[in-house]
Amino acid sequence: MHLTLPFTELNTIVQQKTNQPVEFGFVSDDTISIAYKMNLLLKTVNINATVQVLSVDWPHVEAKIDMGSAGNLLLQGGLGVFGGMLPEGLIESFTDGIAEINLARIPKLEKTLSMFDVKGIAFSPEQLGLEVGMK
């Protein structure tokens, strides 16, 4: 079964869940861009990241995250700046720009995600595509 989710809809969902305007965009069939504003040390900072999916072993996803030189430096600092914003256990490890992500640790999606076995991820210019099997 193939599920698709337009990036515009994904932007809306994330904004509703986090009260944070986030913009997802297409880069290639395995890479998306993410842009959002973040309050950091009393200053609003524009964060632009590209995320390349390297492998999928559901619910574990390995991804290469590039946030530019300054952003990467913050990330290499052990996610200390971002750690408090993310669900505990979501990022299992982060070394050399490669993050091991456990999507089962997103609290509001935990139950939904446990019903599916996601076998693949592919991006197209307008949408995120998931190849899904039922558990």
Binding site: D29, D30, S55, K119, G120, I121, A122, E131
Partner: peptide
Amino acid sequence: LNYGNPLLTNGA
């Protein structure tokens, strides 16, 4: 037959 990257589809 999948349209995506074979490393990212059907569990590779």
